[in-house]
Design a protein around this nucleic acid. Structure first.
Lengths: 354, 354
DNA sequence: TAGTCCGTCTTGAACGATCAAATCCCGAAA
DNA sequence: TTTCGGGATTTGATCGTTCAAGACGGACTA
């Protein structure tokens, strides 16, 4: 393996100084056309790539984005959601010239300690947080330290003065879409299999179902007997589905907050149309219709928001997310404004379960 | 946020020189006890942590381990295996003072290019490769460049002169265990639902099933009619299971090469004991017995092997894997010898499907 | 003709750590 | 008393890059 090619090697080869090479790479506009060409040739000929470590020493920028990898979920089959998000994140980050650094943490306190540690040692430029919850201490801490970050997931119940950039998928729109799909197929008794109250994500998805039913003319008083709350898991879903099927006026369709619960509902083997949420691999495997989150795009949006605050918005076009499909939230000034929010629309994947 | 604490700040605070502080951290044995204590206090008081970038410039070591994150598997429900492995890797690496850097690549060629790119820019100290296949160009390239790496998965069909460290789980032992479990339960007609020939992993798992049946006195000529090959997926598994159940002498038990196929077999709703492979979340969800790979330990072993070749084996005890549970392969000299191989034993998770 | 400006390029310093070599200090040996 | 040895500590140089300031030269102006 040839010895490391440094900027001096390139400079010598192109008959210019270090700084000129550096300028060609970082501020090409200050270098004369002809020189620029010569330097670029030298770079290519020698296979030069700037050492990130040296660059970081001078600029203080590591081009690293830190993400916590969650332990495989004990409670369901939804682990692959994070997996796909992480894959998208790695890909989008790479396109923008960043890399993803992983860390783990068992709880919020451990995570704060890890923040501090990482910042002291590897100095990541930003963090991406997932599964934020009510009163999450992590966002507060990062805001205080003025460390750039984005969350994948809206801030449920965070005081509005603590605003920060986030990306999320409109869960309510997803369940509403699923509900409408069942309505269109002729169903009138459409139940909801959800989590216990208190989960921002879960309550949001329930709201979408309720909204769709109400605007279809279903009497709001009817909703209570169609609604069901249980912890996540296939056995729990099976039990809850049985209860809804054995009621006086049984349901004929079921919108579920997760594929785990939906899988349980399918296992009743009763005559029932079921739609799950997250389009996990198991949904594909068993032919379960499901609401699919645009995870690759969510990841791309996260990167785009980060790049915006890191590079001051002057990033190259390659790293941009498809903004057409994104609904910008609050009426921010497009540039230089307060943090931006991106709410993406999910889609329904119909399969034989409906 | 306080300004960055440098080694000079610590030196001043403890009334020693830079180098002494550095020595306390890297070669404490050359520093006098009393000085060591004073420096350690200063480090704690100021919250000093060595900048990785500066350290890397001098030492050439990045304390980064690069891993490719695989796209969510299109073909099954086994994605979570990689997920859990990655989690374990991150955790074990952190314990040993390393961090995991992610990258993606669509094919082997793209991956080689990414190797080169990463090595030029971020200079990871090592790579962890997963899903290696016949004649994998990546291992050859890394060996040529003398870049440390480990693979999770044995080298199937690699010339013996290209030896390198690997960690794997003994799939044959897993299917043999599953088969014995069914034999013990009184089954005599135990089929195998496997992948088409040509996959190292798949052939190995089939061999374990065959071995267990043969040593239980089943006539080897009987195996052919118990064996079934199909591509991965629940529908494929369902079809194949039906075929085995509708044969002249139907099977009563089924050992499967994956949870996807096993899930399909369960969907036949016939009287049949089924055991899957990988203990994915869906197995837990539907009560499918499955062979479980010790992924956290596999990850720990990967890190241990890497640390061995990176730090010359002189790593601290914290990062060690539990070597008791590991069977060392070939008779290497423990230290300074050729690459080490670790073959781990899976375990059977019995559930209501048996 | 001299002065000013501007575009282009070069030089010196700095980022924060470690390596290699020099220095200091103290006790033992000559 | 001087010399030597060696443990403990310090000093100077270096890794590869970018920042800040300086140098150069031609054009334009006064």
């Amino acid at each position: 393996m040839a010895d490391k090619v440094t900027i001096d090697d390139v400079a010598r080869y192109a008959n210019v100084s270090r700084q000129t090479v550096s300028n060609v790479l970082n501020s090409p506009e200050v270098v004369r056309e002809e020189t620029r060409r010569r330097v670029r040739e030298a770079v290519k000929a020698l296979g030069y790539r700037a050492s990130q470590a040296a660059r970081q020493m001078r600029t203080g920028r590591s081009r690293l984005i830190a993400v916590r990898i969650e332990p495989a979920q004990e409670d369901g089959i939804n682990g692959s959601v994070f997996d796909r998000f992480l894959h998208g994140l790695t890909e989008s980050a790479a396109r923008a010239g960043y890399r993803v650094l992983l860390y783990t943490a068992d709880d919020h306190d451990a995570e704060l300690a890890t923040f501090d540690d990482l910042l002291g040692v590897y100095e990541p430029d930003a963090f991406v947080l997932t599964s934020t919850d009510y009163g999450d201490p992590r966002t507060t801490w990062l805001l205080e330290q003025r460390i750039p970050f984005v969350t994948f997931g809206r801030p449920w119940g965070v005081p509005p003065d603590q605003d920060y950039p986030w990306v999320d998928v409109d869960g309510a729109a997803g369940t509403a879409m699923a509900t409408r799909h069942l309505l269109d197929a002729g169903h009138r008794r459409i139940g909801f299999l959800g989590w216990p109250e208190g989960s921002g994500v879960g309550d949001d998805r329930r709201a979408g179902w309720a909204r769709a039913l109400t605007s279809a003319g279903i009497d709001p008083s009817e909703l209570a007997e169609l609604d069901s709350r249980t912890t996540d898991g296939a056995p729990e879903g099976e039990a809850a589905a049985h209860a809804l099927l054995d009621a006086d006026r049984p349901v004929t369709g079921l919108v579920c907050v997760s594929d785990s619960l939906a899988l349980g509902a399918l296992q009743t083997r009763r005559r029932l149309s079921v739609i799950g949420f997250d389009d996990t691999p198991v949904a594909r495997a068993v032919g379960l219709a499901s609401v699919s989150q645009p995870l690759a795009e969510a990841a791309a949006s996260c990167v785009a928001l980060l790049i915006h605050s890191l590079d001051g918005g002057s990033n190259d076009a390659r790293g941009r997310t498809n903004a057409d499909a994104a609904e910008r939230g609050s009426a921010d000034t497009p540039s230089e404004g307060p943090p931006t929010h991106v709410l993406l629309q999910p889609s329904l994947v119909p399969r034989k379960s409906v």
